[in-house]
Amino acid sequence: MGSNDFFTVAYKILSYLKYCYEHGEQPDPGVINERTLLISKAQYVETLRMLSDHNYIEGVTFTHTKEGVLYSFQERVSRMLCKKGNFARMNWRF
Rank of each mutant, 00 (worst) to 15 (best):
S40Y: 04
R89Y: 10
N33G: 05
R79Y: 05
R35K: 12
S72F: 08
M90N: 05
A88G: 14
S72A: 11
M80T: 11
I32P: 01
Y19R: 08
R93P: 00
E34T: 03
Y71I: 00
R89K: 15
E75I: 11
E67N: 10
V31C: 12
L81A: 15
E34N: 08
N91Q: 09
I32S: 00
W92T: 03
P27E: 09
F87E: 12
V77C: 08
S40F: 12
T61W: 00
G59R: 07
Y56H: 15
R49L: 05
N86C: 07
Q43A: 13
Y16R: 06
L38K: 07
S78R: 12
T63M: 10
K84I: 11
G85R: 06
I39S: 07
L14H: 05
W92P: 02
L70E: 15
R49I: 03
E34P: 05
F73N: 07
Y44E: 01
F73E: 07
S72I: 02
Q74G: 08
N33A: 11
L70G: 01
H64D: 12
M50Y: 06
Y11G: 06
L38W: 04
Y56Q: 00
K41A: 13
E46M: 13
R76D: 14
F7S: 05
Q74T: 13
D28A: 09
T36Y: 01
I32A: 02
Y21A: 14
P29N: 12
M50F: 11
E34Q: 13
S72M: 10
H64E: 15
F73C: 06
D53N: 13
S78P: 00
K84Y: 12
E67T: 12
T47G: 07
S40N: 10
W92N: 01
E46S: 07
S52I: 04
Y16E: 04
T47L: 13
E75K: 12
N86T: 03
Y71D: 00
N55D: 12
M50H: 11
G85E: 10
T36D: 07
P27R: 03
E67C: 03
N86L: 13
N55H: 15
Q43F: 05
I39F: 08
D53K: 04
L17A: 05
R49D: 11
M50I: 15
K12G: 00
R49W: 08
L38H: 14
H23R: 03
T61L: 13
S15K: 14
